[in-house]
Design a protein around this nucleic acid. Structure first.
Lengths: 199, 199, 199, 199
DNA sequence: GATGAATGAGTCTTCATTCAT
DNA sequence: GATGAATGAAGACTCATTCAT
């Protein structure tokens, strides 16, 4: 009996993921409002009505996407003692390997998050804060070890994260210079962040 | 005759602005798709149909907002020789005086820009690029004068701008730490950007 | 005083005709429902509102067109003793010189007449019946003179008229054979009507 | 499986016909433009939206009506050697049994066809030309057999058809004499067409 | 009398959601 | 559980008509 239930649960999870994959794809292409349930159903290869066996309504698809995000980890916490190298490799990871994930994410979720308080709350609590908590800890360790100047670690982490997010957005909306020199950004950012502009 | 025409033009411009003001407000509150023409008309205190005497369709309202943005100037180009002070005052200006403008702007326009290629093109060409061109010039002057390290000025400008944009977004979606310490950001950012993290 | 009134009346009549000319043109191009008051006003070179100084509403424009038609005479009653020649010349007149008038008329008025009982009544009473009365008289004279077989003159006149109307309609909807051989129709019709098909 | 598909197809066809029946009725009563989708839906006993599961838009309803017409056959091609009797019986068929079909058709389709080029093309190509081709063949045979004078068969067929169409239209707009003596028309027309007016 | 901006009722069409099969 | 036809509420947009200037 337990086996049957477990199998059931697995099937349900698989179907939910199938639907969320389709949803994130379609949301990214069209935006939340212009994406239709039919679009998502077709992309998932199922019938419209089936979606409602797994999600209460269209909004729940967004929350489902965010929940899933919060389970995967955007941030890899490799402890390193060389700040410059840590930052640089973290940036390269973001800038080289993740852009298509970011694309989907920013186009699918962000616009809605900006407009939907409930969603924003979920996103902040489930995705953003855990990630920041993790990085802050790293950062604080560096300060304690004297590798980094004693800045407000919470704000600094958020500022650096903001720069990354902002650059992704500028890329997404088609800022030509950023798109063209995307691969040089990890270096430039590392220099700015680590050494500052001042001569 | 010329007087009558001029009066006409003024009335038309006033009505257009009245409508755009309402549109940016409603778009910011509900997002483009969930904002209805009726919402906007009611907010503007006019009838639904009147909007169509001034704009061809709902999309044109967005383009109208962007066009108006591109005429106002987000950036004040005060030439200063003290990089730190220039940056700090620019940040304070953004962070203290403009947030409500930014709110409306980011909530009303950005989500659509992410999803609508045509809009994105207009935004980049009319708002972003002119502003970057201006700041790049300043920045290059500093480099030439030896006040700033010889970084790629175009990318650096965009990176700093990205940080500002990203922090606004994080604030908008309700990141609690940023909201709470918003007034300390100009200092923190200035420190990071000017001196870097490295001890 | 009387002079002023007469001048007034003339001006009003002229303005009404100017509007009706525009209306019949636009109705013919777009059909009654898809023609807008603005279309008509622009075609007439006046403002929308001015039309309402001369006609109560859009429907009255149609009635106005019909009233004007009933004042012009579609039928020229030249008395002739040669039936064949009379018919042939009447047909040539219709088929060669009037088609553009017919076009406008059929496209502008007929569709509405088919759907609007009140209009149909006006059209029948004011345009059709007077014309038929005139021709019937001719026709009856021919019968009395032994030039024509003693058929029911009223029905015969309507049948011949029906043929002309029907052929105009077939031409208007683009029946290719009729369009191509339009100039041969007077002869063919005359032969059919006068001699019949039978060998 | 094939059975299920066949059943599906039948259901779809039935629903389409149900909608087209309602559409032709409402179009006939109000004309295309003044007929609303809600009217048609109510007449068909379904919801507004359901119509759009079967037709892309209001225009497609008209095209659907025409397509269905082109599948039914207006013309019965009974070969007869007695021209007079053939014509008379054909006329009686039209004039006695079909008038209500004609009513709907002329009121629903004709007005639009006069104004809509695309529709006119479909109607001419799918309904009119096939019918004419059929009758022309008959007619040519009569000429070849010496039963009928050697007139231009194509134009003659169109002229006779024009008379029938024209008389239907005059009836529809309420010409009183035609309405009153409708049942005598087959005889009168037959006499005119077969023997001509000339004594 | 002429103007044309303002009005808002009315229409087509879309699409989230339901439910019988 | 899966399906997809049916539903009908909601929204963008049009346009006849009014009326202040």
């Amino acid at each position: 009996m337990a086996d049957v239930d477990a199998l059931q649960a697995q099937l349900v999870a698989a179907r939910r993921n199938q639907i969320l994959d389709a949803a994130i794809k379609v949301f990214a292409e069209k935006g939340f409002d212009r994406a239709t349930i039919r679009d998502i159903a077709k992309t998932a290869g199922i019938a419209d009505g089936t979606i409602y066996n797994y999600f209460d309504n269209k909004n729940e698809l967004l929350l489902g996407i965010i929940n899933r995000l919060s389970q995967s980890t955007f941030v890899q916490a490799e402890d390193m003692t060389n700040v410059r190298e840590w930052l640089r490799s973290a940036l390269v990871r973001h800038y080289e390997s993740l852009p298509s994930e970011y694309d989907k994410f920013f186009r699918a979720i962000f616009p809605e998050v900006l407009v939907n308080k409930e969603l924003a709350g979920s996103y902040v609590a489930q995705v953003l804060e855990p990630a920041y908590a993790l990085i802050e800890k790293c950062f604080q360790a560096w300060i304690d070890n004297g590798l980094v100047r004693p800045l407000d670690s919470a704000l600094t982490v958020r500022a650096v994260s903001g720069m990354i997010i902002g650059l992704h957005l500028l890329r997404l909306i088609g800022e030509p210079h950023i798109q063209e020199h995307w691969d040089r950004l990890p270096d430039v950012i590392t220099q700015i962040i680590v050494n500052g502009l001042k001569k």
